[in-house]
Design a binder for these strands. Sequence first.
DNA 1: GATAAAAATGTAACTGCTTACATATGTAAG
DNA 2: CTTACATATGTAAGCAGTTACATTTTTATC
Lengths: 336, 336
Amino acid sequence: MTIYDISKKAGVSIATVSRVLNGSSNVKPRTRKKVLDIIEQCGYKPNAFARGLGLNSMKTVGILCADASDLYLAKAIYYIEQNLRESGYNSVLCCTGYEIPSRKKCLNLLLSQHVDSVVMVGSNFIMSNAEDNQYVVEGAASVPIMLLNADFDCPNVYCTLCDDYKATQDATEGMLDAGIKNILYLYNSTSYSGLKKLAGFQNALVSHDIPLRKEYQQCFSGSREDIDGVKDFIENLYKSGLKFDGIVTSEDFLAIGAMNFAKKNKIDVPSELQIVGYNNSILAHCSEPNISSIDNRLEDMCVQLVKTLIGILTQNEMPQKTIFSGELIKRGSTNF
Amino acid sequence: MTIYDISKKAGVSIATVSRVLNGSSNVKPRTRKKVLDIIEQCGYKPNAFARGLGLNSMKTVGILCADASDLYLAKAIYYIEQNLRESGYNSVLCCTGYEIPSRKKCLNLLLSQHVDSVVMVGSNFIMSNAEDNQYVVEGAASVPIMLLNADFDCPNVYCTLCDDYKATQDATEGMLDAGIKNILYLYNSTSYSGLKKLAGFQNALVSHDIPLRKEYQQCFSGSREDIDGVKDFIENLYKSGLKFDGIVTSEDFLAIGAMNFAKKNKIDVPSELQIVGYNNSILAHCSEPNISSIDNRLEDMCVQLVKTLIGILTQNEMPQKTIFSGELIKRGSTNF
DNA sequence: GATAAAAATGTAACTGCTTACATATGTAAG
DNA sequence: CTTACATATGTAAGCAGTTACATTTTTATC
């Protein structure tokens, strides 16, 4: 069933059918109706390849993410896909893992599919080592690249992100102002945004004239799934004699691990220990009391990212960088 | 940069270039090398539309899921995408939500893109009302449909699922055998698999000669994100005087809600209350103690689903139904 | 070295659509 | 009833590949 069949049955030319299909205004209403009726009747579906061939665009954008099973990334993918589809674009998903060569391969795969753009979901797509980001530059040569929650200066690369630095700093200062002095910072990534958060923590201490102590900045190197590992990790610090009455983290799973550590060791939260998570994910609701967590406006970011993308694809000038402000959502794990 | 440019530079015809690109054996090694060198040199990428137009297949499968941000579905998508890509197929993702009309629309969208197959992720794609499943039958008319964790008898529809009935029955019987007599069953969906689980619970009681009591089978109708709602829901039951010393659930988020309820009300788990989750997701690790949860072999199912799909697409005869057995992973929230 | 068979390569038709351009039809003013 | 202009429709040339079939080149055999 092709456009030719329809045109024959409707007694018009294929151009007219095509015009009806594409919503051109230059079609007599009666003709339009006749064609639409026949299309409906025959259950005709236009062939997307042929259309893409003609338009050299399949109205498709590629989504690259390390791991779609990750809580946070999955949510981002969901929002982005929704917004894209509402704007008439489809999404092709590629989970790249965390290795550079695999990322290159996935990116090339998408480019060969003639996607109109590639969205990279997650700060881990930009590394502190400039060489590792070369593939992004190369990709941007053929198609606009949208980064979610990563910062990268390069033509044709657009960033939508949250000011993780400020958000972490604010939360830490809130805790300091509440009289908590021995704050443990727990993080798990040295990605660009990971380092920003760490810097925010450090700056909060500095601005309160508190010396930075290395043992109070701990990096957990296990996977995001290994909450038990986090619990053990903190327990070891605790047993080794480290004294802390507050924990600020770079992700909610670390905070949940901290909650479990506290419960196991009968440390009351928040009276003896205050805990702050990051991402304001469902994990923040998985403990009693719930965890105070920094919301980094994921949905807002995704909506904005798609808005920017559509703008670019329709030839509008768009800002290369949009920055949102994070905000601590206060719940039972803190009392400031 | 097209195949014509390459053919010109290499001094051969487009047919030869096409043959090199498609790995046909009828090309002189020297010619092949020359062409490949030029392709490499020019960074030429074949146009997937034109190719798709010719082959009428883009080696792409559509993935339909209600909500990619759901923990469980996200994991499934991840596994499926990975396995498909390893087999040389791409995935187009469409999040449909839970409404039938929206599902139809998404399915049609995918079909018009000439996907080679559509994978439907999640038991909620098959409803108990036959009429609601008509769109699946229609879809199967044009392309093989793969169902993950749903059961539906229809030509060209292939199911990969877990025996939720048996798994729930076994877990419930385990609890009964441990002397727990007042078991609350908490579920949240009347999808096909949701009803299967419920039946498994009921059957366990019956086989132990315990009368079914309606108030011990409670359906939580809120969203999967609303863990606090679950906690309140259970607390209300508790305060209304319902006595229970065990809770079996149809999903982990219900079990986490139960854990939070217990902690808030200072009910010790597992000595005073035993709790069983379902899906063995990360949520099972989000409480102290960890939650015993039924593992429904998600990864195995996904691997098998893709295996079956590839088999079908390569014209092999494949079983229409593959059933895995679930298994209770015992952790601290139970002591049997 | 001629001949037949096999291997390599080329030509051109075909895929299903979009769209520039050409043509036909309709409408309002003179 | 023309003429001019707007509106509607049709024709045919792309788009970038695949592939059946035709043609040329190579190889093997006698």
